[in-house]
């Protein structure tokens, strides 16, 4: 670095001021870069991305005659296992007024709590106000894992 003596004091102060400005700007800029990075490095509340969407769980974890709601993107999907042990998956959005349906073991069908809409285990609307069957999803079983995907 050059360290020369200025011709007069006024210039000296201006140089000093510039140095502070330069140093301050450098520190502030570094802070502006480093703060987001440090904050990014801090583990978030939920430490890692959840296994959502298409992976629906384990075959052994689901009893016969049971059903679970699985989040598929931004929509719920109901995965049901019937008495014969087969898996089926349907959109869990009731075709009547968009409530979320559920599996009812006592009735042996898919049921909507809002208006008692009923669908059989093939997704067909069998009673109550639903106008259409539930959209079906594809269930893929690879070994123990169940995954759900959209039907072609």
């Amino acid at each position: 670095m050059t360290s020369e003596v200025g011709p007069n004091g006024e210039q000296e102060t201006r140089r000093g001021f510039l140095r502070y400005l330069l140093g301050g700007g450098l520190v502030a800029s570094l802070a502006a870069v480093l703060y987001p990075i440090m904050a990014y490095l801090k583990p978030p509340q939920q430490a890692e991305v959840e296994v959502t969407s298409v992976k629906a769980g384990k075959v052994s974890a689901m009893e016969k005659e049971s059903g679970i709601i699985v989040r598929f993107g931004n929509k719920p999907v109901i995965l049901v296992r019937n008495a014969a042990g087969e898996f089926r998956a349907f959109s869990a959005t009731c075709t009547h007024l968009d409530c979320t349906v559920q599996f009812r073991k006592d009735m042996g069908l898919i049921w909507c709590a809002c208006h008692n809409g009923r669908y059989d285990l093939n997704g067909r609307n069998v009673a109550g106000p639903p106008p259409r069957p539930l959209d079906e999803y594809r269930v893929i079983i690879q070994g123990e894992d169940i995954s759900i995907s959209k039907k072609a």
């Binding site: 510039l18 400005l21 330069l22 301050g24 700007g25 450098l26 502030a28 800029s29 802070a31 502006a32």
Partner: peptide, 12 residues
């Protein structure tokens, strides 16, 4: 951040 960078850039 823009303020900080601008100060630094001008002084530089």
């Amino acid at each position: 951040a823009t303020l900080a960078i601008t100060v630094l850039a001008i002084s530089l």
